[in-house]
């Protein structure tokens, strides 16, 4: 069984839906930012991002696959020569949808979908590295630390444990704090 399309259906027929999405993506790459209904924006996002991924590959076969959706050669040219290099640093998330309230005539929720042109913030890379490092460090530090407070707890008072913590805290991980908490509970 084929996987059903994610999100609501558009238009009156599959061909109509394909045309709507193709026209929306063409306009998006032409203008960089378009205003449409929330529903259409949500359906457009995965298609537009896939087309940008093709554009980043940049070879002839990718260009032909994009041309099956975006029929305008001029727009495809800008996609491959201007948009794709601008997205070189970015791994996905090339478009952004912002809700802007409802339309006057039919009260339809509207949204702006736009290409993300801001440079990739260095913060994202740092956060990724930090989380990876924490994951790596966590299992190693946990094992020896867990033993220590458990041994101490029955023999000594609870007051001793926090004092040790305060000295060690700045140097060590959150994983250790968890371990010490366990020790306190047992005590």
């Amino acid at each position: 069984m084929p996987t059903p399309t994610k999100g609501p259906r558009l238009g009156g027929s599959p061909a109509h839906e394909r045309l709507i999405l193709a026209n929306l993506s063409t306009s998006l790459f032409e203008h960089g930012r378009i205003t449409t209904t929330e529903t259409k924006a949500k359906r457009l996002r995965p298609l537009a991002e896939r087309l940008i991924t093709f554009a980043k590959k940049g070879d002839l076969s990718a260009r032909r696959r994009v041309l099956t959706v975006v029929r305008d050669k001029g727009v495809v040219h800008t996609l491959f020569t201007e948009i794709a290099p601008a997205m070189a640093e970015r791994n996905g998330g090339y478009t952004r949808i912002t809700k802007i309230g409802t339309r006057k005539g039919d009260n339809a929720p509207m949204a702006v979908i736009e290409l993300v042109t801001e440079p990739v913030s260095p913060k994202q890379a740092v956060v990724k590295e930090a989380t990876k490092a924490a994951e790596k460090a966590a299992p190693v530090t946990e094992a020896p630390v867990e033993d220590a407070p458990v041994e101490d707890a029955p023999a000594e008072d609870v007051t001793d444990a926090p004092v040790e913590d305060a000295a060690e805290a700045p140097a060590e991980d959150a994983a250790e704090k968890k371990a010490t908490k366990k020790g306190k509970k047992e005590a």
């Binding site: 205003t35 912002t98 802007i100 309230g101 006057k104 509207m110 702006v112």
Partner: peptide, 10 residues
């Protein structure tokens, strides 16, 4: 970020 389309005049 600014979205002019969001502005309600009516």
């Amino acid at each position: 970020r600014t979205y002019r389309d969001a502005l309600k005049t009516v």
